[in-house]
Each structure stands twice: as C-alpha cells, then as structure tokens.
Amino acid sequence: MANLLNNYLLPLIIIVLEILAIVVPLLVAVAYLTYFERKVLAAAQLRKGPNVVGPFGLLQPLADGLKLMMKETVIPSGANRVVFIAAPILTFTLSLIAWAVIPIQAGVVLADINVGILYLFAISSLGVYGIIMAGWSSNSKYAFLGALRSAAQMVSYEVSMGFVIVTVLLCAGSLNLSAIVNSQAGSYGLLNWYWLPLLPMFVVFFISVLAETNRSPFDLPEGESELVAGFFVEYSAMTFALFFLGEYGNMILMSAMTSILFLGGWLSPLPFAPFTWIPGFVWLFAKIAFVLFCFLWVRATFPRFRYDQLMRLGWKVFLPLSLGWLVLTAGVLTAIRTWSGTGG
C-alpha cells in the first residue's frame, strides 16, 4: 500500500499541483487579455473602453464569464452531437497542454523535453482540428465555409513557420527551449537575441503567427461581414466560451513562443547588475505582454486581407523568403565554423 502511495499517488498529486500552478494563472491572464484588448482598441479609437463594472472596469471579464456560463447551450438539431461538443473541448485543451514545455525562468519548466520546440509546433498544428470539426459538425454553410478557409490558411502558414523555426534551431543548435534561450545570452543583452541577426525571419514569424491564430488582419475564418461569425456561428454559452478561451490562450502561447525564439525568453535586455536582479519570469511576462500589444496594435490598424492575397503572401512571398533565409543561415554558420575552426 505504501509502495502504491509512493510510486503512483504522490507523483500524481505533485503533477496535478504543478499543472494547476500553470493553468490557473493562464486562465486569469486570458480573462484579462480580453480586458486589455478592449482597452487598447478603445485607446486606438479614442474611446474609453470598459469602465463601469468595478474600478476602471476591471471586473468586466468576470462579468462576461459569468454571463457566458449562465446562458443556455443550444445544439442545432442537424448537428453531429459528439463532434459538435468535442470541437471546443479540443481547442481549449490544446491551448493549455502546450504550456507544459514553456520555460518560465532558468530551470523552471514543467516538462524539460529534448524536442520542446517540435512539441510546440505539433500542438499548434493540431489547432486546426478544433475549427474543422466545429465547422463540419455544425451542419451550417457559414460555419463550414469558415472552417474550410481556416484549414487552408493554417496549413499554408504552418509551412513558413516551420522553416523559421528551423532557422532558429540552426543558430541555437538544440531543440530544447531552455537551450534556445541560453544560446541567446551574451554581453550585448538585447542585441544578442535572435530578432536582430534573423530580423526578416522575425517579421515573417510574427505575421505567420497572426495567420495561425486567426487574428486580424487574417481573421477570414470568422469574417463577420460575409460569414456571420465563421466556424463558431452555431455555438453558444459555454461551448462558445471554450472557443474564445482557446483562441486567446493560443494568442498568449504564440506570444510566449515568439519571446522564447526571438526575444531571449527570460533573459534581461540589459545584462548588468540592477536589471539582472529582477527575476526572469518578470522579463518573460513583459515580453509576452509586448508581443500581445503588437497583436492588438495590428488589429486596430489594418483592414482584413482578401483571401487570394492571403494565399499569395503565404505561398509566394513567405515560403521562398524563409526557405532562402534558411539556406543562407546554414551557409553562414558553416562558413563561420570552417574559418574559425572552433567547431562551434
């Protein structure tokens, strides 16, 4: 009995506690991201934004969440019930499980696996299933068209995202996320991070992330002017809330991925005394918040892309550019290794 307790029960409890330590702050962050988005958009449009519920409108996300929970879940009679319910659950779960490999600080990570970045890429490529399943099972033409658009869009931009990730991997020499962050450390602080030497790839990655998370200006799957609300047109109450949480969770996840790959993760931008005293997770959160602000900034600035322009940008601009830059990076790295003779 004691054996069972020590071998199975105790590790299980510890793992569950660790998972909760990540998931609960994440859900709070998702709730306040909606508040942040409304405030930023309001500021961009010279409005006030939510300011009635609680001080500065800070309780608005809670009020919204409560409203969604109290509503009735309507399942269309023509819908495929199991798939219809499974789709939002899948979207939400995928946006949570990816956080297992994100290093929050040096050594602080739930699962420090060898192929961390591939795991992240795999999970983000699964995100399309939630959307396809929702679109198909709703048995509605608007939802289906939204799902088809989204599937084509996400698969297209995944290709160039993959090449960008490979470029970073070549520079870091590892698939482990902590190793990628550590390889960006140096005496020049933020000038050592990969955004500067790989600047075109950073831009390609950021734009691909916008397309991958179906954010404006690539929010065609839910283009409300032609598709009502896109793939989740038939969803209501909690099923809709799960889609919403999943989408915003994915935004935070992709911002974290951008921060780790290009903005030095938990590293301090200025690598000397007063700044290195600040714990690493503060820097990581600041970087995530900055990338999220850029997401919202783009949303407030740019109109939606036309579908053929979206495809053109993905296949005819980003794919050749990232492929060419990959070859160039590999060539430069080999040249440095050959001439310096260090084998690094």
Binding site: N114, V115, L118, Y119, F121, A122, S125, L126, V128, Y129, I132, L148, A151, A152, V155, E158, G162, L175
Partner: peptide, 20 residues
C-alpha cells in the same frame, strides 16, 4: 523526434487535407 514528426506531418498536415 519521430513521435513529434508523426504528429506534425501526418496529423497536422496530411490528415487535415484528407479530412478536407
């Protein structure tokens, strides 16, 4: 590595087109 590539290539790309 094979596990992740299986998910990325077969689940993330091939099966999406198949489902499509």
């Amino acid at each position: 590595f094979l596990a992740m590539i299986l998910v990325v290539v077969y689940v993330g790309a091939v099966a999406v087109l198949f489902l499509f």
